[in-house]
Every structure is written in structure tokens, then in C-alpha cells.
Design a protein around this nucleic acid. Sequence first.
RNA 1: AGCGGGGUAGCGCAGCCAGGUCUAGCGCGCCGGGCUCAUAACCCGGAUGUCGGUGGUUCAAAUCCACCCCCCGCUACCA
Length: 550
Amino acid sequence: MFIVTAALPYCNAKLHVGHLRSTYLPADIYARFLKSKGYTAFYVCGSDCHGTPILVRAIQEQKKPEEIVEYYHNIIKQQLEDSLIHFDIYSKTFNPNHYKMTQEFYERIRKNGYTYKEKVQSLYCPNCKMVLPDRLVRGTCPYCGAENQYGDYCEVCGRTYTPLQLRNPRCGICGNTDLEIKELNHVFFRLSELLNPVKKWLESAKVTEGAKKYALNWIKEGLRDWDISRSINWGVPIPGEKNLVFYVWFDAPIGYITFTKELFESLGKDWRKIWIEGEGYIVHFIGKDIIYHHLIFWPGMLIAAEFALPNEIRVRGFATLEGKKMSKSRRWYILLDEFFSFFDPEYLRWYWTTTTSESLSDGDFSFRTLEEKVNNVLIATIGNFIHRILSLIKRGNIRNGTLIANAISKAQAIINDTLQLYHTNQFDKAAEKIITLAGFGNELLGKTEPWRNLSTKTAHDVLFTCFAFILALNMLIDPILPRSARRLSEILQLEQKPHLSDIDKVFDSSYIKVILEQFVEQGKPFILFRKISRQRIQELLTLLKRRAKA
RNA sequence: AGCGGGGUAGCGCAGCCAGGUCUAGCGCGCCGGGCUCAUAACCCGGAUGUCGGUGGUUCAAAUCCACCCCCCGCUACCA
């Protein structure tokens, strides 16, 4: 049984096109592939609702954090749905089930002796009545003297320090310079003691190549204990501690467990089988920004709590937009809903699938390439192949034929490769193979030219064989283009979308014949994909550039 | 500064870990021809590269080693 997760979206902003690339899309493709292959698989996700950024935003907008979370949770959920991301559950961490799960998880690691308390000095802003997290203190770097730096890290010289070392500290929210020092109890997680088991797991785990090196290198110098508490009034309360909540990075990944539990309870299944007894196969999809959390902290937490460890962690890089880094402050980005108001979500899915490999490298989103990938590859090769075959079949009233043996064996090889590539998370290469299959069909047509005389045996055999290719394509494109796959099966008059578990039937003549006859009787060729117009691209691009300049 | 990733035709990439099958492939674009069933789509053919630089190992290097240059990213309380 597979549990596929995608990193939890942080609930204080809308998602942009890049979010799909690194995380939600690959996980979706993988989950859809597994299900289509006949495996039991669940795609689990939800909003990450805690942490200081949400609290700060609430303060700035004079709202409650609950309101911010509610607002963005609904938006993000909708955005992902519109991206044709199909979760088996999309929940959120601001949720009694999650509070309970996090606290129970904590109890387990506490009982196992992996926590301790220690006093920590922090800056307090009397004006905001708030203990300030490091990132909410601004001041002068104690080393290089650069002004307006964070409380923990200088962007100019790259050195780290504590907020108490910072010169002329001021509150990052209200600017107050009259800060007090408070000594407070914090809860620490003995991560340092977990160095060896974490390392051992990491070395053997199935993790994206670069990410593993990255994490192993990072722990080479050992691990420090981890402060898992914060003195703010937004988050999961720590049992037995007054005025302390869990640091968001402690509670967020536990969301994977909470959400599995919520889903499983609705299905009458036991979540413990997966997360405690280790009978499932857990795959996390994440962006490269949270490698440490998922490859080090999270396994450490799981080991300390005696929970099951993930089996695979798949990491992908970020997206740039027309060659430039996306940035909120520079207003250079495209939100998912903005893209969808211009173009079909499947075009974005196709774009990222064909341009993204499983690696830490970033990828660019460019409209020129989008046009190319959609118009000249997806449509010209696959869409056009399907359309011309169906048109010829309809016109020639082709109802049967014989499969061309050597063409079939070649197609079978391509299909096997595609399945293998899906399985190993190489979706870009899987898409390439799918293109190859359609290309091979086109080649066959070019050589045999069945349109010259549709009543010949060759014409019948070629079209019969190509029709089998279309059935295969219908199954193969489904994980990437689920909506088009559905539409294609409707065109073919199939009662339901075919599954990859039935892929062998595709080359069974009697099976093909039934579907072919059905199609010739009742179906008609239909344009599956519409081309992207250059004018629409221009319009959206103009919009983005105008916003960036404003 | 340290660490990670990367530098291969106009653009995007594969190959490198297990050196020869690479007189370096693929997609898009480009040029020429064909076809007309098809969404001006499709088929066939072609051109374009000192594989970041220098040196080394080897019978043989895009692939291994050393040094250097350039780009991107990260560096535990920002998710």
C-alpha cells in the first residue's frame, strides 16, 4: 500500500506555477500512475497552518490567524483542484485531530527520553506584547556592520549569530527599539543523539541523488539539538508547558500522519499499520528548499517516536519565470489561477512534466517554450496522430484488420519503457516515450499511406494497428493529462477510462475489434487539444510585465 | 568563506557514476524534398558543436584525476 505525500502548502499565500513543478504535479502523476497500475495508493496532503509568518500577517492585517488560515486554505485547495491534482485527502494542520496527533507524537518522544527543557534568552517587544522569533528582529550585523539584517543571519557577510548579539535590535513588526530580554523555558529535541540512526537511514533510503549528498554532507559535522518550541500564541500547545507551542516545523510533517489517519478512519482502515507498523510504502515529494527537514529532522522525529520511516523522498528544484527568479516583492510571478484564466491546466502539467527531471536543478517557465511544447509537440505529434487515425477509420469505415507484428513488438517495447520510467519517477522521460509511440505511428502512416486507398488490406492493418496505439496512448497519458484521457475515452465510446493494469489488452485483436466497431458505429473524431494562440500569450505576458513595473 | 548542483549545436536537454558501441545523440527551431488522411499538422533527407579552460592518466576521455574560470542554489528557528 502506497502513501504518497506532497509538502504541505504554507497557508499564507496563493500558489504560483512553480509550486506545481517541484511538488504537487510529480506526486500527482506518481499517485495516478500507481492507481492506474492497480496498486492501492493514497495521495495525502493538507495546509500547513502554523508558524510566525501567519501570525505576523494576522497582526498586520488586524485579523485572527484563524481567519488568514481559513481564507488561504480554501483558495489553495481550489487552486490545486483546478490544477487537476487529485488528493485522496486535503486537510489542514489547524484541526483538533492534528493537535491531538502532534501532542501524542510528542509524548512518545518525551517518554523515550528525547526531549529536555532549557532556558533560552529571547527578545521581547512590549509594544506588540510578543516574544520575537529570530527572523522578526532586525538590526546591525555584529560582524560586518551591515544594517537592517535579520536576528539570526546576515545576508551581506553570510554569518550566523543570535538576536542578542545583533547591534541596535528593533522589532521587525512595529519597529520598536525598546526591546526587553526575557528568559524562557524552551523544549529541545535531542537530535544530536540521533545522528547515527538518521545517517544510517539516509544512506540506504531511496532519495533524489543530489539531495542525499546534500544532507549527508550537512550532518558530517554532527547534529545540534533542536529547539522545538516557540513562545507565541499560535500553534499546537505543548502538553505540560505554559505559553509554549510547537515550532511549526515540528508539527507540520506530523500532518502527513494526521491526514492519513483522517483518511483511513473514513475508509475503516488502521493508520497505525502504515505509520507505526511500517506495512506501507511511504513516498514524500518535496521541493529542494526543505531537504533538511525531510531528510534529517523528520526521520529523526520518526525514529525517536518509533514510527515508520519514509521509503522514498523525491526532490525537485524551483521554477524561474522567463529566466528570472520569481519574487513576490518584485512582483514577478504567475499564480496558478492567473495561468488558468488564460490556458488549460493540462498545458501547464504537460509543460512541467516534459521539462522537469528528478533533480535539484531549477527549471524555467517561458511562454515561448510553452507554445512549442504544446503546439509543436503535444498537439502536432500526439493530438494530430489521434485525430488523423480516427478520421481515416471513420472515413474508411474500418471495422477490423490484423495487427502488424513487428510494429506491435516495437510499440510494446516503447510501452514497457514508459511504464518503467513512470515507476522510477522519470516522468519527463516517460512523456518523451509517449511522444515516441505517437511518432512511430506517424512514421508507419507515412510509409504506408493508407489514405491512397482505404479498402486495401494494408490500409486496414495499418489503421487497426494504429488504433491499438491510440488505446495505449489513452492509458499512458492519463497520469499526466487525466482530463484529456477521459475525453479520449469518451470519443472512443468507452464506458470508463481504461487503466494501465489492462495495458496488455491493447494488443488483443478481439478486444480492439469490439472497441473499434463501437467507435465506427457511434463515435466521431474530435479535436482533443486546442492550440495555444500567440495572442493569448502576449496578453498574459503584458499583464505580468505591467505588474512587475508597477 | 564552506558546501551542493551545473557549464555539450540558436534554444532546451541526454550521455559522464561502470572510458572505446560518441567520426558526440535527442527535442524544438532552421534548410531542401515528399504527402494531402490530419489541428498549415505528418513523412524523408540535410546543415550547425574546438563536449567551460589548461594539464595529466591511458592504446583510447564528453566520460577518470588535478588545478583554474563562469553560472545557480543552500548554509538548522523564513515556510
